[in-house]
């Protein structure tokens, strides 16, 4: 019973983490259509930047996070402006952009390894509490993940619904050509969603830094989970992506009840397989 409670809690906290990643990716992919594989390493670079600012530079953690989030947003925008946009301008087919993003993924991932080394990076200066539910436990950092997911989720939802930019983003996600026709500046919006999406990923990165520490390979799992959540949730639906993120986390976590840990990833992928084959349009279908 304790195990079940622990696994459910893990599912919840991991779900919050996945949801953050998925929301950032959904903003970028849903709006611009760019399969931004480098989202993973961008998130990793963000987390490493926060680590460097906190540990090497010695900034207070909150300041490191703020600065790191801003840097990550800038890096995301850089990916768009210097890598993806030239392809868009020359009218390249989507697969070319996709392969370019894979190239960018490899470059950034390995650059992290070269610059920071392959060892695990952690922050010791931030103290946090451990809370118990029976014999199951969780930490303040994990609570922070849930809070961050809630705040970011509500913030993005509000932004998309109420602000002028948000409405324009929704229009562009729905039909890019029409959006251009009615005078929406799609380049500016692309920059905006790349900035926002990358910033969201850095928020997730800051909390993972406290929870697990960093390694250069962390980007792959992140972009993968985000991508899977967006597709299982239904492309174009932020709500779907969040639901799918939690679903994935719970499947992964509760699967461990019966199935050995090392098969965790396989469980998720098998769910993805089944899901895509059975319902290719995702949980939340677009009208």
């Amino acid at each position: 019973m304790d195990l079940l409670i622990q696994l459910t809690l893990n599912g919840l906290f991991n779900g919050a983490h996945f949801a953050l990643l998925a929301m950032g990716f959904a903003l970028i992919f849903g709006t611009t259509g760019v399969v931004h594989f480098a989202y993973g390493p961008v998130y990793a670079v963000g987390a490493y930047a926060i680590w460097a600012l906190a540990v090497l530079v010695g900034l207070p953690f909150w300041a490191a996070v703020l600065l790191g989030v801003a840097l990550t947003a800038a890096l995301g925008v850089g990916c768009y402006l210097f890598i993806y946009r030239p392809f868009e301008i020359s009218g390249s087919p989507p697969f070319v952009v996709l392969v370019a993003s894979l190239g960018l993924f490899i470059v950034m991932k390995n650059l992290i390894g070269i610059v920071f080394g392959t060892g695990v990076k952690t922050v010791d200066s931030v103290a946090y509490d451990v809370h118990f539910v029976g014999n199951a436990f969780f930490t303040t950092v994990q609570l922070g993940q849930v809070a961050a997911a809630l705040l970011v989720g509500c913030g993005i939802a509000l932004f998309l619904r109420a602000s002028r930019y948000g409405k324009a983003i929704r229009a562009m996600a729905d039909n890019r050509e029409m959006a251009t026709v009615i005078g929406i500046d799609t380049t500016r919006l692309s920059i905006l969603v790349f900035a926002l999406g990358s910033a969201v990923s850095a928020v997730a990165g800051s909390l993972v830094l406290l929870r697990d520490g960093l390694n250069p390979n962390m980007g792959f799992g992140a972009v993968f989970v985000a991508f899977v959540a967006v597709i299982v949730g239904g492309v174009g639906s932020l709500r779907g992506a969040v639901i799918a993120a939690f679903l994935l986390a719970f499947v992964q976590s509760l699967g461990m009840w019966q199935i050995p840990t090392e098969w965790q990833n396989t469980i998720v992928f098998v769910v993805l397989f089944g899901f895509l084959l059975a319902r290719p349009s995702g949980i939340v279908r677009r009208a």
Binding site: P86, G103, G113
Partner: peptide, 19 residues
């Protein structure tokens, strides 16, 4: 890792110059 970075860069450059 340096080798990997080079692959990545070569890939992107080729896609740009000769898709």
């Amino acid at each position: 890792m340096v080798r990997q970075v080079i692959y990545g860069v070569v890939l992107i450059v080729i896609l740009r110059l000769r898709p």
